[in-house]
Structure formats: structure tokens, C-alpha cells
Design a protein around this nucleic acid. Structure first.
Lengths: 403, 403
DNA sequence: CGCATTCTTTTCTGTTGTCAATAAAAGAAG
DNA sequence: CTTCTTTTATTGACAACAGAAAAGAATGCG
């Protein structure tokens, strides 16, 4: 249950273990990580532990430099001993996050607080595992060199891949975009980069990032909906990211609300992806306006210029997304839904329809759910991967799971 | 964290505490409860504990009679010391389960293994809280008298109510059928019956019963779909029953897959309940056949006699239910979906359509989900309530939560 | 300057669960 | 019939974790 004590040689190695011996220590660190600087007393309250336990857990973390302490000058209460704030030293450790898509690899170097320090993207010629692995290794080495200059050790690598991914096994079971089946990516990558590697589904990785560092902080139940080339959804229920019994969950893109809708590549009609994905929107804008827009950007521009046909296409997409969110909310009753993704560029065209369709389909108390958006710069997917690496680092041996 | 030690007077009271001091003990008891007789070695494996810990946790439970031990004559392995099986003594304690509907109260007396010993139902004239409480108390007293004869102490009462129920607070926030708002039912009932009372949503209660004693045993992710007067859904994700941030979850009945479908009382069109609930089916059978069937039973009989119009109505209902199950499966990727409810009487009319629509809408690996049915005698809802009472009894003070 | 107040640390103690050794209960082998 | 092997169960020593209580620290207030 508990990791064996470190031998001297292990302890002096650069890749020393994270000193969160006990689940309580990992929980405390996670709380400080997500909820910014806190006093020990506040940590004790949030973790439902005694102040003594917090002091004891915090000490080794401070000694090894993962936590920093300073006086709380801001909100000094009138009375009593002034509190000391405890916060995470982001610069203490670095992590690599890598997002692999069908045609490029995006990698970021993030610190322990998951702030991006360096970002890189590289096009991908060969989709076969060996080729991808070679490109990936090159990119990782490049970022490791950058990390060298920042003077902090890189403690882990996270890789995000779309499709059916088994994080525990580090296995990509099936990835349609890459045309991979049963690729033991974590082991392969760990071999070539010499660091612990965490592999997870891309949407789940993004969800972890939101849960620990984003709009999902402190929420036990929320959903993250990504709109872009595909429509995805990450779910957090009871503080845990949902993976499903077979490794697949949050497949919001193939919900269908209209049996007469356009045909989807999955074989059904009216799927959310068949209406609201980038390719579907481009297709529909062409059909509706007769203008041969080349890609999503052009379609978007056309709609922004006020073309009624194009606007109607976006409105339809928004309505379908809103209904899909309504379905998620009715089923799971989350506290918040975060909409994100490249498709958010068109949010002004969507927004009213999304909110309208959501409000109409949410039932009862579920409608109290807060629907927000969160911009998604291109490195965000890779940052999600870094978040999974941080997660793995913190609880290298202690399973916990609350956000 | 731990309950205070019992004073002598408390210890000698009939309602002595359950001796599951530690979370591990509660976990062990739960494992034995759901997974039938087990050897200590097997319990240790399942609970990820050392055999020593199991021995220590089991002893007081045997001493107080909650567990029984006997030799394992069945599957004697060739070699080694013969194992002793540990099992729960169902007769050691009794629980009351009560289901309150708009027009009747159903109550059962169940043992610790959640086997029903006695069942009663009483019509309900007055839906106001005081009237219901009076009828409920009468029924409870009646069953307590029966319990007297069985010679085992009644340790708790569970009450299941449809609508928005806060189990932790014992509060019925809103129940449309009863027209209740913010009724502190647990406290009120505890006052009149003098026993610990657990109040929960009816579908969640049924889900707990399936998770601990039914088709959901051992599954970390499953869904229970009830078909009847309404269409409901209980969800278990990561071993925990989903309640949603606002107390509402599993609202499958108001998913809509057809914007042109019949209008639903919630204001939308094409909701599952507007197509597949008993009242919708009766309405549609009348419209389709021109025969003025009085209720669901007559509609069912008509369909069973082969009337094509009636059969078409059931087929439509089945298709919608199948799509709803598909949505649940795509979102959560459960291992199994259990279909139950009074409407199951028509399952032969539904089945093909449900399976077809489910198979068509399930995406990728999610389709590996197993779809089963589970008959639902009328007392089953009340049994679910009893299961929640058992659950509360076992972890009176230790929070755990895995099934 | 003492006092109240709040945050933090220390010391002590009890609980819990693991470890390793041992006992128990068989069949198998000689 | 004895001894060995194999598996299950128990025991007692031990380590570690977290809580309680009390003391310590750092401030404002009268």
C-alpha cells in the first residue's frame, strides 16, 4: 500500500520521488495546487484534517521545495497571530504535455502549476506509430533542452491522443485519426525519453486540466464540452473523471436529436457531429449559400459578415449543441458546463441558440446548471496532457481522486 | 471520524450501533453482503487488505451475530487447509422499506440481506404531508408488530419518494406527484416511528438495491432504467450512485430525440416520457386503433392479441427507449444497463426495438455494454428503500461508497 | 505591559493495518 | 503412520498516521 522507503541512491537521483507519502499529503498538495495560496488552518478545514496533520504533511513538501511559505499581508484579520500562506512553487518542477493529432504534434513545457513556459508544434507526415514516436521524441528532446535552461527538472511527460485510451495501462486501444490499434504508447515513449509517461484520452486530459487548474476547480460535478473538428465531452462525476467501463465516455458527438438530420459517418442521422462539427458546418454553409468556402475560417468569416444562410447554419449547430448539453445536464446534473474548443471562435453565432436550446431541454433543478465558455488556445490540449503528467507525479503511488 | 464509545446505557439499548468501527470493516461487510459467502482469504483479495486485517475486522462482526461462519464443503480445493466461509446472517436485523406514490404507500419488512419478509400496501387518500405521515406511521407500526414475531430487531426505516430528494438532509425538496416542497421527511418520520430514517429518491433507492443485491453487484458503472408511469434512470459511476450537484440526475424521461414528436407536459416535444410512458402509450393506442382502452393493461392486452396499431405504438416506444439508453451508454460507457419497471410487462413488444435502436445509436466500444432486464414486482420499489436503510445502518458514521 | 485572539507547532496517545511467524487442517508421498 | 506440502487463518510485534491537548508564536487592543 505504501511505497518502500527510498534507498540513498534512489533519493539522490535527479528523478526523486514526490514526498507525498500518505494520501492525506497528496490531497493537501492538490488542494494547495488548485486553490492557490492558503493558510494551514484553511487547508485543514478544506481537507477535513486536524491542523496538526497539515503541519506535518506540509513540512517535507516545503523542505524539498515543492511548497513555499510567506506571510499573508493581504487579508490580515484584525486579531490573532498573522497567518502564513502556503503555495506551490511552480518553478520547482517541469512537465511536458504532448497532443498528437492526425496531422501535427503540439507540445508544451509547463511548470508544476501548469503554466505554459514553452510551446511548439510540428507537422506530422507519417501516422504510423514508429514515425509519430520519432517525431515526438525529437520534439521532447528539444523541449528538454529548453527545460535545461529554466533550471528545473522535468518530472514527467503526458501524451494526449483522441480515441479509446487506457491510462492505467498506458495503452492506445484504438485511435481512428491515427489509425492505431493497441499501441503501448506509454512504454514506448518512456523508453525513448527516459521519463515517466502518462497517456490519456485528449478530452479527458483537458478535463483534468480544467478540474485542477481551470473552470472546474472545486466542483465535484461538471462537464467540459469541446466544439471543433469533432464534438467531445469530458465528465467529472463525484470529483472523478469518468472513463467508462470500456474506456469510452462522453461521446456526445454521436447523440442524435433529429432522425431526419444529415447522415453522419457513424451511420446514423442527425448526430451532433453531423450538424455542428467544423466539416459539417463548412458543408452546410456551402450548400446553404452556394459559396464554395474552403474551410471553417472562411465559413466563419462569411457568417460574421452577416450572410443569412451561413448564420442559419451556425444557429442550427448551436441548437444541436444546446440540446446535447441539455441531455448531459438532465442525465448527470452537473454544477457547471464549460464549453471550449476551436469552434468557440464562432461562439457569438452560437451562443443564443445554445442557451435557448439548453434552457428548453433542461428539466427542473438541472436547469440551475451554469453554462460557461473557456477560450481554448491551440496549446491548451497539450497543456491538458501536462496536467495528467502532474497528476501522475503527485499520486505516483497513492490513489485518491478528488479534485 | 470515529463514533464515540458507547456508554453502558447506550450499549444495552435495543438499537445498538453496528460494529463497523473502521471504513475497512464496513467495506468488508459490504463485500460479504453483496458477494455471498466468501472465505477470509478471498475477502482480503477483494478488499485489497491483508488477511490479518480481515480476521480482525470479521471477529467482532461474528461475535455480535452479524456474520456467520461455516465450512466450505462445496469447492474444496485438493490441497491446503479447508477454508471457512463467512456470510451475513440475514435474520440478525430487519429493516423497513417504504415507497410513497401519489395514491398509495407500499411497505416491506426486509432482512439484512434485503430479502422481503412481509409486504403491505395501503391506498392514500390525502397527499398532504400530515396525512401521508399518519398513514405511513400506521403501516410502520403494523410491520413493527410483525417484526416482533420474527424475533429480530428493526434497525432502520428507508423511505423512497419520487422527485428531488436530499438524502443527506433527509429532505424532500420537491415532489411533483405528492405536491410537496421542502418537507423534512426524515426528521418527521423518525419522530413518529422512533427509528433512524433514511429518505431518498425512489429511482436512486432502486439503484442502491441493484448495486448491492441485484444485477449491479460488482459493477463500478451501470445504469438502471425504469419504464412505467414515468421513465427514470439511476446511474452508478465509479461505484457511486449519482445524485447530481442539485440533487437531480438520471432524468432520462425528458430527453427528446424527435422535435416533431408529441408534446410533453414539460413543454417540449418528443420527450421519452411523451412517447413511452404508460399514459402516452394508452393515449397513442387509442388514437391509433380507435379503441377506447381504459388503461395500460388493456392497451397491452390489445397489443398482445396482435392488433397492428397497438403493436406499432409499443414499437415506437421501444425505439425511443432504446435511443435513450444509447444516449446514456454513449455518455457514461456503463458496463450494463438494467431495464426494469412496471412497463416491463410489455417487454416482448419492446425488446427488438429497444435493442435495435440501442445498437444503432451506441458508438464504438460503448456498444459492448450489456443490456439486461430485471423483473420488478410491486414491492421492489419499497425493497429499494429498505436497501438504503441497510446502507445507512452499515456506514452510520463511516463514509465509504464503493459497491 | 498584560490580555485576547488566532494561527501553528509539539508532544503524546490510540487506532489501524502490515509483516512475519505460527498454528491449523487437510491431502500426498514415502 | 509419519512427514511433507499446501493453503487458510491467527497471533503478536511494530510502524505510521492522525487526533487531542497544550504550549508557543505573533499580532492588536486596552
Amino acid at each position: 500500500m505504501r511505497p518502500p522507503p527510498l534507498t540513498p541512491s534512489e533519493a539522490s537521483r535527479p528523478a526523486e520521488a514526490f514526498p507525498a507519502h500518505t494520501p492525506a499529503a497528496a490531497q493537501i498538495f492538490t488542494i494547495v495546487l488548485s486553490h492557490g495560496p492558503l493558510t494551514r488552518a484553511e487547508i485543514a478545514r478544506r481537507a477535513a484534517l486536524s491542523p496538526a496533520a497539515v503541519t506535518k504533511a506540509v513540512r517535507p513538501l516545503i523542505e524539498l521545495g515543492y511548497l513555499l511559505e510567506d506571510a499573508d499581508d493581504e487579508h490580515r484579520r484584525a486579531l490573532g497571530r498573522p497567518a502564513n500562506l502556503v503555495r506551490v512553487d511552480g518553478g520547482r518542477a517541469l512537465f511536458l504535455g504532448v497532443k498528437v493529432t492526425g496531422d501535427e504534434i503540439i507540445a508544451v513545457l509547463a511548470d508544476l502549476c501548469c503554466r505554459i513556459r514553452v510551446a511548439r508544434r510540428v507537422p506530422l507526415g507519417d501516422r504510423r506509430a514508429e514515425g509519430v514516436l520519432a517525431t515526438l521524441s525529437g520534439l521532447v528532446l528539444e523541449l528538454l533542452a529548453e527545460a535545461e535552461e529554466l533550471g528545473a527538472p522535468v518530472k514527467g511527460v503526458g501524451i494526449a491522443v483522441s480515441g479509446d485510451v487506457d491510462r492505467a495501462e498506458g495503452l492506445v486501444r484504438y485511435s481512428p485519426f491515427l489509425e492505431w490499434r493497441d499501441v503501448p504508447l506509454a512504454n514506448l515513449a518512456a523508453m525513448t525519453v527516459g521519463l515517466p509517461v502518462t497517456v490519456d484520452n485528449d478530452v479527458r486530459a483537458l478535463t483534468v486540466a480544467e478540474q485542477w487548474f481551470g473552470a472546474g476547480v472545486g466542483l465535484a460535478d461538471f462537464a467540459l464540452v469541446t466544439v471543433g473538428a469533432g464534438i467531445g465531452c469530458g465528465l467529472v462525476v463525484g470529483g472523478r473523471v469518468v472513463s467508462g467501463a470500456h474506456g469510452v465516455a462522453g461521446e456526445i458527438g454521436h447523440l442524435s436529436f433529429d432522425p431526419a438530420g444529415p447522415r453522419c459517418h457513424c451511420g446514423n442521422r442527425g448526430c451532433v457531429e453531423a450538424v455542428a462539427s467544423e466539416s459539417a458546418i463548412v458543408r452546410d454553409v456551402r450548400a446553404e449559400t452556394g459559396i464554395d468556402v474552403a474551410d471553417a475560417a472562411q465559413a466563419l468569416e462569411l457568417a460574421h459578415r452577416g450572410d443569412p444562410g451561413a448564420r442559419a447554419v451556425y444557429a442550427r449547430a448551436g441548437a444541436v449543441i444546446g440540446r446535447a448539453i441539455g441531455a448531459v445536464v438532465n442525465l448527470l446534473g452537473p454544477e457547471r458546463v464549460i464549453i471550449s474548443g476551436e469552434g468557440l471562435a464562432a461562439y457569438d453565432l452560437f451562443a443564443a441558440e445554445i442557451k435557448g436550446a439548453f434552457a428548453a431541454s433542461a428539466f427542473g433543478a438541472a436547469a440551475r446548471c451554469d453554462v460557461t465558455t473557456c477560450p481554448l488556445p491551440f496549446e491548451e490540449w497539450a497543456r491538458g496532457a501536462a496536467a495528467t503528467a502532474i497528476q501522475s507525479f503527485i499520486r505516483a503511488d497513492s490513489r485518491d481522486g478528488r479534485g
